[in-house]
Amino acid sequence: MALTDPLGDMLTRIRNGQRAKKDSVVTPASKLRANVLEVLKREGYIRGYSEEELAGHAGLRVELKYFEGQPAIKHVARVSKPGRRVYSGSSDLPRVRNGLGIVIVSTPKGVLSDAEARDQNVGGEVLAEVF
């Protein structure tokens, strides 16, 4: 079965893994997924990620992060979906929980958090929101 939203699939695996108190989850690899994981790592929502082999294909192992037994990620949701893309300029980027969360944005300068995109004055496709 073909996967229509690979990024949404990865975010769902992270969400389900944290609800099940897993140490790590595995997802198929792609450049976009790796870039989104890099933003999550920079912002402190995951401990890290590594590449590994999955049944002959490249995969990514995401090490989940917990604080006092609670998941570091309280909410993760896909904003721009295959059926409805959401774009935003640098001045119009949404704020999540009044700045406590982040929005992950795909820009011409790469995949960035909303704060990084505002600093570099670039907009783009709003991929996901995390807090």
Results as ranks from 00 to 15, higher is better:
A2F: 13
T4A: 13
D5T: 10
P6D: 12
P6F: 13
P6W: 14
P6K: 14
L7V: 09
G8Y: 11
G8C: 10
L11C: 01
L11V: 06
T12F: 09
R13W: 03
R15V: 02
Q18F: 02
A20L: 15
K22N: 10
D23A: 13
A29S: 15
K31T: 12
K31S: 12
L32M: 15
L32S: 04
R33F: 01
V36W: 08
V36Q: 06
L37W: 06
L37G: 02
V39Q: 06
V39C: 04
R42W: 03
E43S: 08
E43K: 14
I46W: 09
I46M: 07
I46V: 14
I46D: 05
R47Q: 09
G48W: 08
E53G: 00
E53W: 02
L54D: 01
L54W: 03
G56W: 12
L60V: 05
R61E: 12
V62S: 04
E63L: 11
K65W: 02
Y66M: 07
Y66D: 05
F67N: 09
F67Y: 09
G69C: 07
Q70S: 13
P71A: 13
I73D: 05
I73Y: 07
K74R: 15
K74Y: 06
V76K: 03
V76Q: 03
A77R: 15
V79K: 11
K81E: 00
G83E: 10
R84I: 12
R84Q: 11
R84G: 00
V86Q: 11
V86D: 05
V86G: 03
G89S: 15
S90V: 02
S91D: 12
L93V: 01
R95I: 00
V96P: 00
N98K: 15
N98G: 12
G99L: 12
G99V: 08
G99D: 10
L100M: 15
G101V: 08
I102R: 02
I102M: 03
V103Y: 07
V103L: 04
P108S: 12
P108G: 04
K109N: 00
K109F: 01
K109V: 00
G110P: 01
S113G: 11
D114M: 07
D114E: 08
D114G: 03
D114A: 12
E116Q: 15
E116R: 09
A117N: 04
D119I: 04
Q120S: 07
Q120V: 01
Q120W: 01
N121G: 00
V122R: 06
G123E: 11
G123Q: 12
G124T: 05
E125G: 03
V126L: 14
V126G: 01
V126R: 10
A128D: 08
E129M: 12
V130A: 07
V130L: 11
V130W: 04
V130R: 08
